[in-house]
Design a protein around this nucleic acid. Sequence first.
DNA 1: GCGGGGTGGTCTGTTCACCAGACCGCTTCT
DNA 2: AGAAGCGGTCTGGTGAACAGACCACCCCGC
Lengths: 178, 178
Amino acid sequence: MALGTGYDQQGCYLARALEVVGERWTLLILRDCFYGVRRFTDLREHLDISRAVLTDRLDTLVANGVLTREGSGGHPEYLLTTAGRALWPTIFALSKWGEQHTTGSHPARLFSHAACDTDIDDAGQCRTCGRIPGPEDLVVRPGPGANAMRRSDRVARALERPHHMLTPIDPAADPITE
Amino acid sequence: MALGTGYDQQGCYLARALEVVGERWTLLILRDCFYGVRRFTDLREHLDISRAVLTDRLDTLVANGVLTREGSGGHPEYLLTTAGRALWPTIFALSKWGEQHTTGSHPARLFSHAACDTDIDDAGQCRTCGRIPGPEDLVVRPGPGANAMRRSDRVARALERPHHMLTPIDPAADPITE
DNA sequence: GCGGGGTGGTCTGTTCACCAGACCGCTTCT
DNA sequence: AGAAGCGGTCTGGTGAACAGACCACCCCGC
């Protein structure tokens, strides 16, 4: 999929993982799913991705058991499966790397362990309890580097206030108070 | 680079990271660098990647400060920089995910903390000292799932015995005699 | 000095994926 | 009923990846 010929012969599960999530846009789509985005249109608007490609990516993610397509009507919701949620450490690590090793390094988003109300460190550990919380126990909020790259779409606006991961983005944009 | 139009507008460092390491083959190249592969030919042979693409990937990795090209005459060696080594958590996490969420899940490679001679867990923590060792403190060895995907190139053979990460693959490695 | 092999690439044509944008059926709102 | 929004599909054009040929440079034995 992602890498065509020769990829499946690699003696490493990294290659298999990349066949599922290594294509263009895929990790960004999944990041948005962690943030609570569930709708086709929201993904498209937030990512500026072509419809055809988004359709293709969602199809392969569903086919590989990373997302489920919920919704009997014509308006499905895409939700992370257990396997999908297990990708959080990867996305977190890569995001951290981008934050620390590319230009203009002020964190755009900060993550805190909801139970302890404490930020997590670069390895994902809660500074209070020492555990590594899963995404369901984390709250995202904008960091000092956030304004540099402001977007105006609905998803971006909803993420301007603290948001519990995996809970749906509210379309009506009213604050979600935990 | 990796994602073309619209990518640089993303309000997240994940997008920036993907511009550097999100292209096809890039993470596999870097994984091999962690294993101690340093030469153009070894990478090409082990990955079955086209020469042109490998050239391009190495160029962009060097340009982005992930690798350095140490030129000893006309035969350069590609080494991970500090920024490059900081990608280990990402590669480890993604590899773990592939191991646990794709078919046939026996670990192909096991990692142990050299100082404690203890395997690390799924989060990368040493089971003895509790720390999260960097790649320079790890030793790779084949796991129970390794024989299913055996390759015959020189790099694959060198990795059939325990190997300290980041130390160069020995080109003259004695063949396996078991 | 000279030939041969290995290394580290570049240069082709072909195939394939991504893109913008038009189009379309279905659902929901007014 | 009419209109708007949603979730796609379907084009033509463009850029990237592929296999494979080709080539310059270095090193070795002689």
